[in-house]
Write a protein that binds this DNA or RNA. Sequence first.
DNA 1: CTTAGGG
DNA 2: CCCTAAG
Length: 693
Amino acid sequence: MVLQKRLDYGFNGYQVPPMPRATRSARRRGSFKKKHEENQMYAFDLLAIVAGKLLLDKERAPSSSDTSADEDQHAVINSAVKNEWQDQEKSLKVEACDQGSADKNIYVSALSRVHRQGCSSKGSLVTQNDLNLGLTSALTKPDCAERSNAEKFGNGQSKSEIGTFASKVEGGSSEYIEFGGCKLEAETKRAVKDEPHKSGMVQSSTVANICNLEDPVVLDAKPPALVSSDSSAKVPLCGNHAPDSSYPTIQDDVNVVSRDDDENSSGCTHPITTKKFFRPAPRIGDRRIRKILASKYWKVAPRLKDATVSNSDRDLKPVFRKRQNCYRHQRSERIYPFKKRKHFAYSSPSNSGGGMSCEFVSDSSQKGSNEDASVSCSRMRGATRTSSSFAGRHTSFLPRDSHVKLRIKSFSVPELLIEIPESSTVGSLKRTVMDAVTAILGSGIRVGVLLQGKKVREDNKTLQQTGISRNNQLDALGFCLEPNPSEIPPSLCPGDSPFFLQCDTPQPILRYPHTTGVVHQSICAVPEPHVNNLGNYIESDHDSAPFPTDTSMDKSTNSKALVAVPAMNVEALAVVPAHRKSKRSEIAQRRIRRPFSVTEVEALVQAVEKLGTGRWRDVKLRAFDNAKHRTYVDLKDKWKTLVHTARISPQQRRGEPVPQELLDRVLAAHAYWSQQQAKQQFKHQQAETCLLL
DNA sequence: CTTAGGG
DNA sequence: CCCTAAG
């Protein structure tokens, strides 16, 4: 009973999100594509959250079919939905990866007023597409949604187990979840006037045995006590069965869901002075949910596998794990700024990661100063190292509910590294700095709490639980500002493309400080570009800069400002609030364009002359092995364009001119290998016909 | 994962 | 560069 449930989900006030990009493997599935084309997937993403949650819960759910177990699940789902709904920025994203499990069938149907069409899964959500959804939804403008007509989803079945959820948020919408004769209702209402201070917060959300849902309860504000005592909500949301020290965040998040209620509702009883410092930002709620889900479903980024495997992979079926690995492999060759960061953000909450920057999260603050001033590092470090100049802490203790008093004198902005030509004006310098700062702050920042140099991620833990209430601990308390991960341009991915602000100079010259090479082993291992004697050796990434071999630090020759912006820290999320404009934070970010240099073209031509046009992998290995950002597909594409370029008139060509000599070779090689290919095919056909006869 | 080819 | 089909 636990596994076979039917989930009906009705919702409204749902804005059609941009076409999501699914994972590569997901896209490959016909089912996905089909759905995708039908535009129905849009309606599913939200459902996926719920469904995904269900799945998660199922996995751990006791096989017993007792109601308490179900109630727990209801609570969890409700909590999840609640969190998604409680803010105005209702964007959520689920990118489920292969989580298919044959024994878990969840059907989904939905009604979207926006879409003006019902959506439903014909098959189980799981089997239908292996939960291989790469979805994003933007839930906005809840106010445009009236009372949902989702009532129609109600069925007359058993109503003994009904999870009722109601939240007061601006705007209203209602959700009905129905499965297996049970129905979960999630409903949001306009902010309640009489409790302005709570507007936007969830008033209540609990699972209750409500026997009659004919008249759905819009809002059932339960006493805080009830809410907080809702043990079900504490059920871990993720597949983590045992507390995993290596992945604390998940566990942490688990509580969050339920705790929020606690926190929110407790406000009226115990106004804690410090609360304002620690209360999660409004949006955090849904973010947490996303994180939870994401941690379970999202693809794992190559670099993070270490950090992630422990979590994400654990519960995966072997088959899927295998696929994931493959995926990683493929990915490792390419650089997807955004995605990578996304994964990064999600998968390495633990500080043990080391490699990238995770370490900074925990250590940097106490170290005080990191000797290396690498840009890349700073990018990462900035997020955490942003340092908190937190001063004057003292506490006063009361027997009952001690209050912690803190005084934060100032926050410093994450570290920036700016490079600007001497000839620049002071004004332009100011502007540059301003831009850099704005880039970070403008996108929103978050506050991080550090305890003894360690990041406190348990947003839902009380100060007391965390130890912040204790005197000795206060000494080690710190705060830091973190760039809002969701807003950082994808190009900020370490090692990929530094965020550089252009000054007034026309032709930007990208330069990478020496220090760049520290963080990213793979990318920065070879700080200085070098070309081997044969000339067919293209060095890595950085050489894509206009002047790859330019090692001079003569600023006068370089007229560009280079600003390294701290990347978001681990906690960051790829989920972007819908209303935020930055398109760049869309799901999948296009890789930055990196025009081939003449040197590269030459190497390519040489390799193709030797290997032919059908062995791009070999070409890659031969001539671009060290250029991590050039995939064999890239090379193939480049060849394609080269051939085209060679055929068109010089006047029509754009970009850095390729020597005619090279183009000639391109044509020659192309002709030759085309001929070879034709011959091969001919022979093949002949052989086959012979065999047939 | 690779190739090939359209977009 | 992206996306996909196909092997």
